[in-house]
Simulated assay, not measured.
Amino acid sequence: MSLSVDVFTADENGESRFLDAPEGSSDLAGFESWRTTVWGSETVRSLGARFFPQLAGDDLRVPPEDVPEFIEEVLLLQGNVESIAARMDSSKPVAQRVGEIAGRLNNILDAAHRASRIRGGVQIW
């Protein structure tokens, strides 16, 4: 099972409306196991991340007003992807882990930028 990243807006009744990923974009946010092994890992927590570690216990919903801070956190993780990958407990080579994590962070950042442009939020689930 995989985690997905989606952009949402609220309709006139306050109900969430999830938008389809545009052509050329991906909604992949990692494997289900990454909730604890990557996004909720001690390495990510030690970097000062506050959004991603929430995935260890539940889905992550970033409201529109927090999207700019969320983007900063994604950029922080992108700058430390080698360290995150090196500390993962995995049989895959570190270079492969780096590529996988970097790819998912790119997808998440793309979704966050799309959300920011329309004053929407981001959900990873």
Score class of each variant (00 low, 15 high):
Gly79Ser: 13
Glu65His: 10
Val44Cys: 07
Thr37Gly: 09
Glu23Met: 09
Gly40Glu: 02
Val62Glu: 14
Arg87Asn: 13
Trp125Arg: 03
Leu76Glu: 11
Gly30Ala: 13
Arg45Tyr: 05
Arg119Lys: 14
Arg119Gln: 12
Trp39Thr: 00
Asp89Gln: 14
Ala10Met: 13
Phe70Gly: 05
Gly79Arg: 15
Leu109Ala: 05
Ala102Asp: 12
Arg87Ile: 04
Gly57Lys: 07
Val7His: 02
Ala115Ile: 00
Glu72His: 13
Met1Gln: 08
Met88Ala: 13
Leu55Gln: 08
Asp59Lys: 09
Leu77Ser: 07
Glu65Ser: 06
Thr9Ser: 15
Pro53Trp: 08
Arg50Trp: 06
Asp20Leu: 11
Ala10Gly: 04
Gly79Gln: 14
Arg104Phe: 01
Ala10Ser: 13
Gln54Ser: 09
Leu109Thr: 00
Val7Glu: 10
Ser46Thr: 11
Arg17Met: 11
Trp34Lys: 08
Val81Leu: 01
Leu60Gly: 02
Leu60Phe: 05
Arg17Glu: 09
Asp6Met: 12
Phe70Asn: 11
Ser33Cys: 04
Leu47Val: 01
Phe51Leu: 07
Phe52Lys: 04
Glu23Cys: 01
Ser16Val: 02
Ile118Asp: 09
Ala111His: 04
Val44Phe: 07
Ala86Phe: 06
Leu75Arg: 15
Ile108Thr: 01
Val94Phe: 07
Leu60His: 04
Ser41Lys: 06
Gly14His: 06
Ala21Lys: 11
Ser91Gly: 09
Arg104Trp: 04
Asp27His: 04
Arg119Trp: 05
Gly30Phe: 07
Ser26Trp: 09
Glu32His: 11
Leu75Lys: 15
Leu77Cys: 05
Ala112Ser: 14
Leu19Glu: 15
Trp34Ala: 03
Arg87Thr: 13
Glu15Met: 09
Met1Pro: 00
Asp110Ile: 00
Val7Cys: 10
Ser25Asn: 10
Gly79Pro: 13
Ala29His: 01
Gly30His: 10
Asp58Ala: 15
Arg35Ala: 11
Ser33His: 04
Ser91His: 13
Arg117Asp: 14
Arg45Asn: 10
Asn106Leu: 14
Asn80Glu: 15
Ala86Trp: 07
Arg97Pro: 00
Arg119Asn: 14
Val7Asp: 05
Arg117Trp: 09
Ala29Leu: 08
Asp20Arg: 07
Leu19Trp: 08
Ile84Ala: 09
Arg119Leu: 07
Ile108Asp: 02
Leu47Arg: 07
Ala49Pro: 02
Asn107Cys: 03
Glu42Leu: 12
Ile101Pro: 04
Glu32Ala: 12
Thr36Glu: 12
Pro53Phe: 08
Arg45Pro: 03
Val81Ile: 01
Ile84Ser: 08
Glu65Thr: 05
Arg97Cys: 03
Ile124Asn: 05
